[in-house]
Amino acid sequence: MHIAEAETEEKKTGCYRHTEMQRDLIIEKLKERGLRITRQRKILLDIILEGECSCCKEIYYRASALDPKIGVATVYRMVNTLESIGAISRKNMYRVACSTKGACTVELDDDTICHLSGQKLNEVILAGLRACGEISEQNIRTLALLPVHEAG
């Protein structure tokens, strides 16, 4: 799908305004920094705003499918620039997917993948909460995971 088609689809679904507003604000900040807003930067920004990529490699693969002239270095520079203006944060950049059977896969920003059973995930979260001083003797009753871009 080309960017123009994606924008048309976003307009139909009602997601366009929120994404476009974010996009416009980011573009303004980039311009304030003296950067030209090139076609490649717009492509990268659109891909990043979709929020479906968990690492620079994924962004690169999607972007290079749209424009083969986009290089890995361009992606890293854009991500670093967006991070420096506060548009994105790579801190805690991971994606968690759990099945109904209690199995869980955690994909880290360095492309490491951890497969955890429901029991192991519970142990990891309990240990983390205790280590951070969030809980003392309590146990987890339920657990709800949200996609990273919604978890604010």
Rank of each mutant, 00 (worst) to 15 (best):
R39I: 08
E20Y: 11
K91P: 03
R33W: 12
S89Q: 07
V124C: 02
G51D: 07
K42R: 15
Y76E: 12
L30G: 03
A65D: 14
A4F: 14
G71N: 04
E5G: 08
I113E: 02
L145K: 02
S64L: 04
Q119G: 04
G34W: 15
Q119C: 01
E58K: 10
A87H: 05
E107M: 10
N122R: 11
A103C: 07
H115N: 08
R39S: 14
Y76A: 05
L66F: 11
Y76I: 10
Q22H: 12
L35S: 13
I125M: 09
R90P: 11
D67T: 12
R33M: 03
A131Q: 01
T74R: 06
E107Y: 04
I43N: 07
H149N: 11
A131R: 09
A127L: 04
L82C: 06
G152S: 05
A65V: 11
L146M: 09
G34M: 13
A73T: 14
R141P: 05
E5I: 13
V148H: 13
Q138M: 15
G152W: 06
E32C: 10
Q119E: 04
G128D: 03
N80D: 07
L126H: 00
G118I: 00
E150N: 05
L129R: 01
T8H: 06
C15E: 13
I59Y: 09
L146D: 11
K29E: 12
P147I: 04
L129H: 02
I59F: 00
E9T: 03
V124K: 07
L49S: 02
C104L: 05
A6L: 15
I70E: 04
R17D: 13
E134M: 15
A4R: 14
L45A: 04
I88V: 14
G128E: 09
V72P: 00
L30Y: 06
E9D: 03
I37G: 04
L126R: 05
L116N: 00
V79N: 00
G102H: 08
I113D: 01
Q22E: 12
R36V: 10
L45R: 01
K11L: 13
K101W: 08
A97F: 03
L44R: 10
I43E: 00
E32V: 00
R90C: 14
S136T: 10
E58Y: 06
G128W: 04
E52Q: 15
K12L: 08
Y60A: 02
D110L: 01
R17S: 12
E123H: 06
M93T: 14
I125K: 11
R39M: 09
A6Q: 14
L143F: 01
G51Q: 07
L126I: 04
S84T: 11
I59K: 07
T13Q: 12
I140A: 01
R62C: 00
M21G: 09
D46M: 03
L30N: 01
G102P: 03
E52R: 15
G133L: 01
